[in-house]
Computed example of a mutant assay.
Amino acid sequence: MSVEHSAVLEGALAPAMNSRLFGHQEAEAFLAQSYKSGKGHHAILIEGPEGIGKATLAFRFANHILSHPEPAEAPSRLADPDPESIITRQLASAASHNLLHLARPVDEKTGRAKGAITVDEVRRAGKFFGQTSGTGNWRIVIVDPADDLNRNAANAILKMLEEPPPRSLFLVLTHAPGRLLPTVRSRCLPLRLKPLETADLRQALTHLGVDLAGPNAGRVLAAASGSVSEALKLVNYGGLDIAEAFEDILAGQGPGSRKSMHKLADVLSGRDSETIFDFFSSLLAGRIMQLAREAAIAGDVGRAERFARLSSSVGERLALSSAYNLDRKQTILSLLDDLKEAL
């Protein structure tokens, strides 16, 4: 009943196929022990920045439960999934009848993920529970991430959280819990994951076959901020060059800066540029919020408010650009112009 796994980053593994998790031993121990006690919560909100292992943890926990359906008989720790077990193979091939993975569906016309998890996707969870209600097995829904739920979908999930079926578990992932409906958050037990420490990030990248022995290793580890996905974008998608070009544009003036803006916008709006465009969008949003915080700390209220308004505007314009398939290059140039003006 799981959906097909969405495209993963070059060099990454789909969470259901990843046999290792680094840096979250406390969270793993908590989940294993709460399940074994028989008093675990029916909905767990797994919080933390993107790319630090939330989905991998969710699939590991799901594998643990489906492999040990009686809590009292389950081990007190989560083991690495056995690649030879039927349950592991079913989860890895999206063929498990006891797990539903809700994520943004793929648009058949464009081949790209749609902008939101819709209510139609959530309704699949209702059918999933109905079809499996007589088996007596655990039924697990992974919402990945809940940040992508539109309003109607969030309300539909809320109804299920309020009246969960027996032997059901919701693993709700979020990069930004503050954006979720308060009523959804209140129905879940929060489990906060922190960005990976440098040693854990190195181990995770080594597991994926990424060699950080080169001269840019320190820059990658620093810029990744404890996120495996950010590190992969920096290494495999030219993220370091994008970040350097972005900072040069902000510091530059005159025709040379304008030329650099167009060059960057061309790269970000080219074919198959979705990943690097998302990377740039996060980079832009993070830079603006950093400027807002710095202004607030310095006591410059007017400047802080200006960057806060720009931050809100950037999010809205990027969403509109995606929803209506607007000219991406012009959107990028406009955003860069506004940021430079605010500076």
Rank of each mutant, 00 (worst) to 15 (best):
A113H: 09
A16V: 03
V8G: 01
L180A: 01
L66F: 02
E28G: 07
E294C: 06
L201S: 04
E163M: 11
E247Y: 09
R317C: 04
L268N: 08
I65H: 02
G238S: 10
P164Q: 07
L250C: 11
K114A: 08
G11T: 10
V235A: 13
E163R: 14
L169V: 01
H68C: 02
I86T: 14
M17Q: 13
V228R: 01
S67K: 10
A103K: 03
T198K: 15
D337W: 06
S281D: 08
C188D: 01
T183K: 12
L196D: 03
S260F: 02
K54Q: 14
F246S: 07
Y35R: 10
A224P: 02
D266F: 13
T135C: 01
P255F: 03
E305Y: 00
L180P: 01
V8H: 07
P145Y: 04
T110W: 14
L13A: 10
V210K: 06
G40R: 08
F280H: 02
L212S: 14
L320T: 08
Q25Y: 07
E316H: 09
S260P: 00
L193E: 10
S321L: 03
R306F: 00
G115R: 11
L181R: 03
N150E: 03
L250V: 14
S19C: 00
K36D: 09
I52L: 14
A58I: 02
G315N: 04
A319N: 04
G48R: 01
G252A: 15
A12N: 14
E28F: 05
E163P: 12
E26H: 12
I65C: 04
A245S: 12
K114S: 03
L193F: 09
P81W: 05
G214K: 05
M289C: 06
A243C: 06
A113G: 10
H207C: 12
L283Y: 00
D120C: 04
L13N: 08
D147H: 07
G51V: 04
E247R: 14
